[in-house]
Nucleic acid binder design. Structure first.
Lengths: 129, 129
DNA sequence: CCTTGACCTTCCCGTGACTGGAACCCCCAT
DNA sequence: ATGGGGGTTCCAGTCACGGGAAGGTCAAGG
């Protein structure tokens, strides 16, 4: 399979697939004309990567997860640790965003949103304390 | 005031303050020796920027908000729109992260996390559907 | 007067995970 | 022969800074 076919099968842009090769996540073969030739195994890995990225794992995590996936003697504890650490990061982000949302929505509620210049949002951003 | 004083007053790293000058958010004066000299007005703007950034506004938004702040004839509706658009982005991010969190925590719960290789997390990432 | 050390300056590179675009090659159909 | 739709590499840009090098400046102490 050529990169275009793989892109439509996996849903990943061709650019991303090339990037994943660049950074060593996959190693497709090459045809005589220089085109990448993808085997089932490569496509499978790319689907794996797409799912892991969709769950927000970093590329570094993906590398680790792929290695664990290919290691038949892995301990599931190792996988679980990667996932739990990532979950902790996500929860921090959620908490940060929730705090922003709360502050923002209060400010928005307090703002008349009319033609007058008085604005609690700007007042808050420029408050002297 | 020199940049170091401003940094400790505003809580912003000196690097960030220089960056904000580079991109035209502030325009501090210069002393004869080339040092930046910050007036109250600059410090005030930097505090404003720090707060806006802490609420997750992009630099572009900050530029807009600063302009509105300095425009005595603004309409609060314009400010409110910037804030509401940003809030919408935040809510999208929160929803995405919540979805990740839910999926991840289910997978984590399902994973024994012991010495055996069997792992529902990897199974899910590599599933054939 | 000289040195030391804490400031300050500019400049350039690196981050993460791609994305866009230029310039070029390859293959098949008309 | 030509046109179009693949493919290839490489370079630059994104966002909001942070790290670090190389060097100028200033106040205090010996």
């Amino acid at each position: 399979m050529n990169i275009g076919d793989v892109a439509s099968q996996t849903g990943l842009p061709a650019k991303t697939i090339r990037y994943y090769e660049d950074i060593g996540l996959i190693r497709p073969m090459r045809d005589d004309n220089g085109y990448r030739r993808f085997r089932e195994q490569d496509v499978h890995k790319l689907i794996f990567l797409g799912r892991a990225r969709a769950l927000g794992f970093t590329i570094g995590d993906c590398r680790t997860l792929l290695a664990l996936y290919e290691d038949e003697t892995r301990a599931s504890a190792d996988v679980k640790k990667v996932a739990r650490d990532h979950l902790a990061q996500i929860e921090i982000k959620i908490a940060d965003l929730n705090a922003m949302r709360d502050t923002l929505s209060h400010l928005i509620d307090a703002c008349a949103g009319d033609n007058r210049p008085d604005c609690p949002i700007l007042s808050d951003l420029s408050r002297k304390s």
